[in-house]
């Protein structure tokens, strides 16, 4: 009994320590937190500013306006990229040797991943707050009311999946040069979804790709929550949980790989 309590205690304390240190580093270096803020804000500004005319296209109907349409995209994008930036932090820690110190010192190594994940969550919550504030300032409305909580729950799961995916890559490669390997697949998956117009308005090869892209379900469901017309909810949450399980296994194997590399 006592040993299981100890294990639980050490898991919490390791996770707490790692999370504190990462959040502290993140918010004390503009170089780290600015990119995670700039990209969603930039996408939001550039897309809503330049592409508002797309709502005139036949078949494009969205009650929350183009601001709301793009808000869902940047929220999901920032959640996924929050995970990627955490992968960068892990890779940087391996390069500087700090990760080895953690592996040596931490009584519970699963707690290390949990710590990084908590930090990533904290960072994303900050980004999401800023993005939401900007979207409201730009005139976004939320016809869906409290139902929009579903959007945040979904984004949270995407954030978790992103962290587990990127940390799995980081712990296998153990170098910041692995950055593109974390960034590119997430970037591609995001932009091969209905970013600018709804799925129904897409055509050609991208429509085919988008149909099989899990991010399409996340965006469609998220946009449904925002306007109070839930769509593809079960599929989106099912896919998010499946990705969490898959990448959880991927990250766990990554940790084993890092441990065996010494």
């Amino acid at each position: 009994m006592s040993s299981s309590t100890d294990r639980g205690g050490s898991f919490v304390s390791v996770a707490h320590g790692v999370a504190w240190r990462n959040l502290h580093n993140h918010f004390s270096h503009p170089m780290y937190y600015i990119p995670s803020l700039v990209f969603p804000l930039l996408f939001f500004t550039a897309f809503t500013g330049a592409l508002g005319a797309l709502t005139d296209l036949p078949g494009f109907e969205f009650e929350a306006g183009y601001e709301g349409f793009q808000y869902v995209f940047v929220l999901i994008q920032s959640a996924a990229f929050g995970g990627v930036f955490t992968g960068f932090a892990i890779a940087r820690d391996f390069e500087t040797g700090f990760a080895r110190r953690l592996l040596l010192a931490a009584p519970n190594r699963q707690g290390i991943i949990a710590g990084y994940a908590l930090a990533a969550l904290g960072r994303w919550v900050f980004t999401a707050l800023v993005v939401t504030g900007v979207a409201f300032a730009a005139g976004m409305t939320m016809p869906g009311g409290v139902g929009v909580a579903g959007l945040y729950a979904l984004a949270l799961l995407v954030n978790g999946a992103g962290i587990l995916f990127a940390s799995g890559v980081a712990m296998r490669m153990r170098t910041v040069q692995a950055g593109p390997l974390m960034q590119t697949p997430v970037f591609l998956a995001l932009f091969l979804a209905p970013v600018y117009v709804p799925l129904a308005v897409l055509d050609g090869w991208i429509e085919t790709v988008a149909r099989f892209n899990p991010f399409t379900a996340f965006l469609e469901a998220g946009r449904g929550f925002l306007v109070g017309r839930p769509t593809t909810v079960g599929l989106a949450f099912g896919l998010a949980v499946a990705l969490l399980v898959l990448f959880g296994w991927w990250a766990h194997r990554g940790l084993r790989s890092a441990e065996s590399a010494g």
């Binding site: 592409l51 296209l57 494009f60 591609l188 932009f191 091969l192 600018y196 050609g204 991208i206």
Partner: peptide, 17 residues
């Protein structure tokens, strides 16, 4: 090239404006 491809696909509808 990737961005060109995804934008060309995603924004094709804009040509109907």
């Amino acid at each position: 090239l990737i961005l060109l491809a995804v934008n060309t696909g995603g924004l094709r509808g804009a040509t109907n404006l």
